[in-house]
């Protein structure tokens, strides 16, 4: 999670049963669960009704420049990037595959998928996600931060626009200073790769799996 985007010192969650399941068996050292005291002092407390939040898209050139997916309008894209430290995990790839299954990437869009680690890469392959990605016309990169910071594996030319699950969309972040980066979740990035413009999985008729 990009807490730095609010210039925070850190972001933190209370560990819970899900944390325990995750770390148990993989932790290389002893761990300890901390929680805040009930009477701890806060600078501010902010409450959000998550049921009012729809998929978000951060427009150029700041992560705070957000719109709900229904307010995006028509934004054509040249590239879609699914990966990075923010959204290159197995769950993210499964979500992208759910949206891409049975669809082809728009002929105007380069879709780049970057599993974040070798373990994720292997598991995604085993689960058949790579077949879905390849059938859709995606290219699958080895793990790297590459395009997120305009390094390589998907640098943008002047005037090009990308939808990306990365974490920053500053001027020139993914390439040319006159290119543009729009930030989203993996489902929106995958749907946009098919539509050729920023859009929702619902526009492809993809049903969200009930829990």
């Amino acid at each position: 999670m990009p807490q730095w985007s609010l210039r925070a010192k850190n972001g933190i969650f209370y560990p819970d049963d899900i944390t325990e399941q995750y770390v148990n068996g993989r932790a290389k050292r002893k761990y300890r669960f901390y929680e805040s005291d009930k009477g701890a002092q806060y600078k501010d407390i902010k409450e959000f009704d998550a049921s009012k939040i729809e998929p978000q898209v951060a427009f150029p050139h700041l992560p705070s420049n957000t719109k709900g997916i229904s307010d995006v309008g028509t934004v054509f894209v040249d590239q879609a990037v699914i990966g990075s430290c923010t959204n290159g995990r197995l769950d993210d790839l499964r979500t992208a595959a759910r949206v891409l299954k049975g669809h082809k990437t728009s002929s105007n869009v380069k879709l780049i998928i970057i599993p974040a680690t070798q373990m994720i890469y292997r598991q995604a392959m085993k689960e058949g996600l790579f077949d879905i990605f390849l059938d859709a016309g995606a290219v699958i990169s080895p793990p790297t931060c590459g395009p997120c910071l305009g390094g390589y594996m998907g640098v943008l030319a002047k005037g090009e626009k990308a939808i990306a699950t990365t974490n920053r969309n500053f001027v020139g972040r993914m390439g040319h200073p006159e290119s543009e980066v729009y930030l989203s979740n993996p489902a929106v990035a995958a749907a946009s790769a098919v539509l050729g413009r920023i859009g929702s999985p619902e526009e492809l008729g993809t049903i969200f799996p009930s829990p």
Binding site: M1, K43, K46, F48, A50, L183, P201
Partner: peptide
């Protein structure tokens, strides 16, 4: 200092951690 963020309610379809944090940054 600490700012506490409290989220309630069920998530909508296709909404995940990325949307929550982008919304919060917004």
């Amino acid at each position: 200092e600490t700012i506490k963020l409290v989220y309630s309610g069920r998530l909508n379809p296709w909404v995940g951690g990325k949307d929550i944090v982008l919304y919060t940054i917004g």
